[in-house]
Amino acid sequence: MCGRYSLAKSKIELEERFQAEMPGEFNPRYNVAPTQLMPVITSDSPEGFSHFYWGITPEFSKNKPVSQKFINARGETISEKVSFKTAFQKRRCIIPADGFYEWKQLGKKSKSPYRFVLENEKAFAFAGIWEEYENENGENKHTFLIITTEANPMVSEIHDRMPVILTPETEKLWLDKQTELEALKSCLQPYDQAKMMSYPVSPMVNQVSNDSPSLIKKTSPMDQFGNYTLFG
């Protein structure tokens, strides 16, 4: 699954990378978590950024709050699941990011956080879908989730799933409402590990309230736990 990611880029960098306009200000984010409001680009409005909450409320769940349960969907079955089928067909989006986190199990009670990035730590986009719902105050809210696939060899050392990372070419296919079903499914592949890097980061990332530049810096095993033998 993907339960935490980063978007440590400026508004100008994001507008240049995705050729889309971002209304208002944007502050780089180093520890994005479910239920938080983040920029996405939708198939309905590919020329601009929208701000949606992470954690989808399915179409059939009217007047429900932002969900922490539906933050990911499996790419292998998304076109068939009742919860996501319509959104997959009609409400696709890309989610800008520059890294994501996974935790390596070291023991029964010990986990080590790792950050996964693309070469040169450039910005990229996850494949996603979005929904709209009406809250208890009658306000329309928008939510999104990240689609996952089987992990590539690099990520599989930590976790058996990874988010679908699109290339600039597949981003366009994903946002195009005319793209056929099979072409959409072909986008949902593990990203090439040769174009990725990973490294350990501070356990401070475990706390959602922490959101500082230090979280995305490489950390030695000693800095993580005070004991190199944990990585033996």
Rank of each mutant, 00 (worst) to 15 (best):
6 S>W: 02
7 L>S: 10
9 K>P: 06
10 S>Y: 07
12 I>M: 07
14 L>M: 15
14 L>V: 03
16 E>W: 03
16 E>C: 10
21 E>L: 14
21 E>Y: 13
22 M>H: 01
22 M>E: 05
23 P>V: 06
24 G>L: 07
27 N>D: 08
30 Y>W: 01
36 Q>G: 00
37 L>H: 12
40 V>P: 11
41 I>K: 03
42 T>F: 10
42 T>N: 07
43 S>Q: 13
48 G>T: 08
51 H>S: 13
52 F>L: 09
54 W>G: 08
55 G>V: 09
56 I>P: 00
56 I>M: 15
57 T>D: 04
57 T>R: 04
58 P>N: 09
58 P>E: 06
61 S>T: 10
62 K>C: 02
62 K>Y: 06
63 N>H: 11
64 K>T: 10
66 V>L: 07
67 S>M: 11
69 K>M: 14
69 K>V: 13
70 F>P: 02
72 N>M: 05
72 N>W: 10
77 T>D: 06
80 E>F: 02
81 K>F: 03
82 V>R: 12
82 V>K: 09
86 T>V: 12
86 T>P: 00
87 A>V: 09
89 Q>A: 14
90 K>S: 14
90 K>L: 14
91 R>S: 14
93 C>S: 12
94 I>Y: 02
94 I>K: 06
94 I>S: 04
99 G>M: 08
104 K>L: 15
107 G>Q: 12
111 K>D: 05
112 S>A: 15
113 P>Q: 05
113 P>K: 01
114 Y>N: 11
115 R>Y: 00
118 L>W: 00
118 L>F: 00
119 E>A: 13
119 E>W: 00
123 A>P: 03
124 F>V: 04
124 F>P: 05
124 F>W: 07
126 F>P: 12
132 E>S: 14
133 Y>G: 13
134 E>A: 03
134 E>M: 09
134 E>Q: 11
135 N>R: 08
136 E>D: 13
136 E>S: 14
138 G>R: 10
139 E>P: 01
139 E>G: 00
140 N>G: 00
148 T>L: 10
153 P>Q: 05
153 P>H: 04
156 S>G: 01
157 E>V: 01
158 I>Q: 08
161 R>S: 01
161 R>Y: 03
163 P>A: 09
170 T>E: 14
172 K>V: 14
172 K>D: 11
173 L>D: 13
174 W>A: 07
176 D>A: 05
178 Q>A: 15
179 T>R: 02
185 K>R: 14
185 K>S: 03
188 L>N: 08
188 L>V: 10
189 Q>L: 14
190 P>A: 07
191 Y>L: 05
191 Y>S: 07
192 D>H: 03
193 Q>H: 13
195 K>L: 15
197 M>L: 13
199 Y>M: 03
200 P>S: 15
201 V>N: 01
201 V>A: 05
203 P>D: 04
205 V>S: 06
205 V>E: 01
206 N>R: 10
208 V>K: 13
215 L>K: 08
217 K>A: 09
218 K>V: 04
221 P>K: 08
221 P>G: 03
223 D>K: 15
225 F>M: 11
228 Y>K: 11
229 T>C: 00
230 L>M: 12
230 L>W: 02
